[in-house]
């Protein structure tokens, strides 16, 4: 069916520009709802419509969850593809970096809980995000975390699928990716969440490698070089022999690094940052962590103040 109506979306202000899209703020006329419009730059790519745009539409169409950004609509205008997304004014990176914003351990718990719920929903729908970082965790006006940017997402691979390990922004990259694994699982997303959890507690990036080689060193220096004992087969990665061997941190070292963290918080973080992807906690295990049931309870998202007052 096909109906004719007055133009539905307005583009009012340009708010950002990435490699493959320009983002505008606008309004959905029929409801007055504020929305964000991602206009895909179709003509500038040597391989046609960018894979990121395809992935974004493909996976967001499938997902409907309070902690995942909503794809409101898709339209073509002047032969450009436009994705209409819900309007989300800020993100976790901005919040972490803004020293004027004070947040509490209960706020961190609330953000982690919402993020884990969103990522769990992706994983139970067989979708890997592959680019989780604070910048991609947007925050709605009512304080809800929304997992966004599915430009690198893909379906959970079949056992024989060969994948690229060149995914996830460097600081949030899991050890199996750093070692060049050609097959990996949803555990790569859980690692990124562990790093984000650490960053929220420290308020600085936890493992900021300068380049890909440095990232390996920074990661293993902080969390210990994996061995065949706790990760059978890890030494078979071709890059393994070039690795510096570091011992894993003791519990006391972790306590000193994360002063405000409770024992349950450290358990959760260590579970998410387990080197062996098969032993790493799943999002279900994370959500069942006692960290979320102990005091303080997670803040009500709508009460978390992000204004500089």
């Amino acid at each position: 069916m096909s109906d004719k109506i007055v133009s539905e979306y307005t583009k009012e202000k340009k708010v950002g520009e990435g490699t493959y899209a320009v983002v505008y703020l606008g309004t959905k006329q029929s409801t007055g709802r504020k929305i964000a419009i991602k206009e895909i730059k179709t003509s500038e790519f040597k391989d046609g419509l960018d894979m990121s745009a395809i992935r974004e539409v493909k996976y967001l169409q499938e997902i409907n969850h309070i902690n995942v950004i909503e794809l409101v609509d898709i339209f073509m205008a002047y032969n450009n593809l436009n994705l209409v997304l819900e309007y989300l004014p800020t993100d976790l990176e901005v919040v972490i970096k803004d020293q004027n914003i004070l947040f509490t351990p209960a706020d961190i718990k609330s953000w982690m809980l919402m993020t884990l719920r969103g990522v769990y929903h992706c994983h139970r729908n067989f979708i890997l995000h592959r680019d989780l970082k604070p910048n991609n965790l947007l925050i709605s006006p009512d304080g809800q975390i929304k997992v966004a940017d599915f430009g690198l997402a893909r379906a959970i691979p079949a056992p024989y699928d060969v994948l690229t390990s060149n995914v996830v922004t460097r600081w949030y990259r899991a050890p199996e990716l750093l070692l060049g694994a050609k097959h990996y699982t949803s555990a790569v997303d859980v690692w990124s969440l562990g790093i984000i959890f650490a960053e929220l507690m420290l308020r600085i990036p936890y493992l900021p490698g300068q380049n890909d080689v440095d990232q390996i060193d920074v990661t293993f220096r902080a969390l210990g070089t994996p061995t065949d004992k706790d990760w059978p087969g890890v030494s078979k990665f071709s890059t393994y022999t070039q690795l510096q061997t570091y011992p894993p941190p003791s519990r006391d070292e972790l306590r000193k690094r994360f002063i405000a963290a409770s024992e349950n918080a450290l358990d959760l973080m260590s579970g998410m940052l387990t080197m062996n992807p098969q032993k790493r906690w799943t999002t279900i295990q994370c959500l069942q962590s006692e960290y979320f049931t102990e005091l303080p309870p997670p803040s009500d998202p709508s009460t978390i103040k992000l204004n500089k007052d």
Partner: peptide
Amino acid sequence: IERRYVLLPQFISDEKTALGEKRFK
């Protein structure tokens, strides 16, 4: 100029309701 694509009939009926039937032809 503007060609929109939706997957669910619900989307269209919601929009009709929001706009008011008279603006649709």
